[in-house]
Amino acid sequence: MNALLEVRNLKVYFPIEEGIFRRATDYVRAVDGVSFEIEAGTTVGLVGESGSGKSTIGKAIVRLVDPTEGEVYYRNDNISSLDDRAFFPFRKKIQMIFQDPFNSLNPRMTVAGIIGEPLEIHFPELSKRERGEKIAQLLTEVGLSPDHMNRYPHQFSGGQRQRIGIARALSVEPEFIICDEAVSALDVSVQAQIINLLQDVQREYRLTYLFIAHDLAVIEHISDFVLVMNRGKLVETATAEEIYANPQDPYTRKLLDAIPRMPTISGG
């Protein structure tokens, strides 16, 4: 198997409970039989509207939700059947960057604490000084300054906070990063900076991305391969070029039509 990650017939159902005994009367089929592969070093874009189940797939891979059925293979290991202890090493290999840089950073921790915490967990052998050096290096890497180490999240803008989130994800030297709407909450100008940063660190560390977003223009820009999701199912899978040039599914066409047309201007 060449794929870094393979998802086979993944299903995640959430029960709708009713009555005082919380009996499950029906299920929300958030993810309903999804299969795909991600090659090492590539970026796979996962696009769909709110409620399509795209975020649930990301969460199921890192076990933030339990899959109802199906398997997730990381290289050759079935990681969907592991217990928490056995899954622990994969938490280092697989990292996540979230949408909202305001809610995903602990407001009571300094930047050093936020980036240092995963280091303490996954690299317990580092001395305090080594850890400090590593944090400083990571901050420089994502375009911040080592002087920012002792500040709190509220002292940063949205784009800077997302850079902190990226530094935290990179701190444990992951192989695979799930970006769940990582740029959706940012201004377009900041969005462009963060997308460029993600592509720079991908090249440098040979990272693999699963890039989840609702904006097909962003997905098309960053991805090698695109998965289109609607109501828990994949409706189209193709290369980024094909999705744009020759969309097959009516739902993909609907997403493409919703993107405002922009004049092309060079320079700036």
Binding site: V188, S189, E220, P263, S266
Partner: peptide
């Protein structure tokens, strides 16, 4: 110009 240029454009790759 810069604000217009930073928006990802479909098909531009």
């Amino acid at each position: 110009k810069a604000l217009i240029a930073c928006i990802p454009k479909l098909g531009a790759k």
